[in-house]
């Protein structure tokens, strides 16, 4: 069994020669069993990254491996829910689940898929085209979970759901993932919907990895400081704003902070927003993609 669910090295993708790079020199490592949030603004390359992981796109340069092999070879072990939840509109819910069984003969768990659909009180004979956005998402998730994936790739899964349905489905998803030790990679530009359920973060900006690593380590590596305007030269300043004589900044501490600063640990949202507002801030990798697993563990402990 591989300890790495997904690993990228020098991954780059360009759609056509005249267009710019959708992804460029992406490198990260995601250990198995994590729930990873892929965050970033629209157009940052989140969907492109997930489509590569799902084996739907071929990289222009570099590599992306899933469970130590190519995405194509790992096809059976992962499930993918695309952003627009493609399903055959003229099929019924029941036939859609049958499709899952027919196309995944070695893995399909009808009970799991049936439960996800039943929880939403969906009529099995309803046609997909007659379902609401939330109900479609539920069917798409049922199809993905019925496959019993070891890696679940979700591209903006909750984008078209109302808050209640979002809460319910997220609960179903997280409970299932926790029970089975599934690695989940979930993209979103709504950071709030990911807080509290992810334990790993990949922040993309303009096709590049800005932050990568376990959530707690990333939060611990940053400090939100406020105080009278003063130099923060010893530290890496991600973002700094001065109103009057008061400065608020998100920094990566490079030593002891002067006593005049009040410090706090940022939230995921503060961390992400600060990085999005400051594209020039240096990237930070805490996922130890060059190191072996043992080294990664010790470095994480050291960081904590």
């Amino acid at each position: 069994m591989s300890d790495t669910a997904m690993e990228a090295a020098g991954l780059g993708k360009r759609f056509g020669r005249r267009k710019g790079w959708a992804l460029r020199e992406c490198a990260f490592r995601l250990p198995a069993g994590r729930v990873c949030a892929v965050v970033g603004p629209n157009g940052a390359g989140k969907s492109t990254l997930l489509a590569h992981a799902a084996g739907l796109l071929r990289p222009t340069e570099g590599t992306l491996t899933v469970f130590g092999t190519t995405p194509g070879a790992a096809r059976e072990r992962m499930a993918y829910v695309a952003q627009d939840k493609p399903l055959h509109a003229h099929l019924t819910v029941e036939d859609t689940l049958r499709l899952g069984r027919e196309l995944n003969p070695r893995r399909w768990d009808a009970a799991v898929a049936g439960r996800v659909v039943a929880d939403g009180a969906l009529d099995p004979d309803a046609k997909i085209r007659d379902l609401s956005g939330g109900q479609r998402t539920r069917v798409a998730l049922a199809l993905a979970l019925g496959k019993r994936p070891e890696l679940l790739l979700l591209d903006e899964p909750m984008a078209d759901l109302d808050p209640l349905a979002r809460h319910e489905l997220m609960g179903t998803l997280m409970a299932d993932a926790a029970d089975n030790g599934t690695t989940v990679v979930m993209s979103s530009h709504v950071v709030a919907e990911l807080e509290g359920c992810c334990d790993h973060v990949l922040l993309l900006g303009a096709g590049q990895v800005r932050l990568a690593g376990p959530l707690d380590d990333l939060l611990a590596a940053h400090t939100l400081v406020s105080g009278p305007a003063a130099a923060l030269d010893a530290h890496t300043v991600v973002e700094s704003r001065t109103t009057g004589r008061q400065t608020t900044a998100l920094i990566r501490a490079g030593g002891r902070l002067a006593g005049t600063w009040q410090s706090a640990t940022p939230t995921l949202e503060e961390l992400v927003l600060a990085h999005l507002r400051s594209p020039e801030a240096p990237p930070l990798h805490l996922d130890a993609d060059d190191a072996t697993d043992e080294d990664a563990d010790t470095s994480v402990e050291a960081a904590v």
């Binding site: 739907l56 096809r75 059976e76 493609p86 055959h88 070695r106």
Partner: peptide, 14 residues
């Protein structure tokens, strides 16, 4: 166009 081909490719079918 509607992504249903990709739906098939992300099941166990290459």
């Amino acid at each position: 166009e509607d992504g249903t081909a990709h739906l098939a490719w992300t099941q166990s079918v290459s």
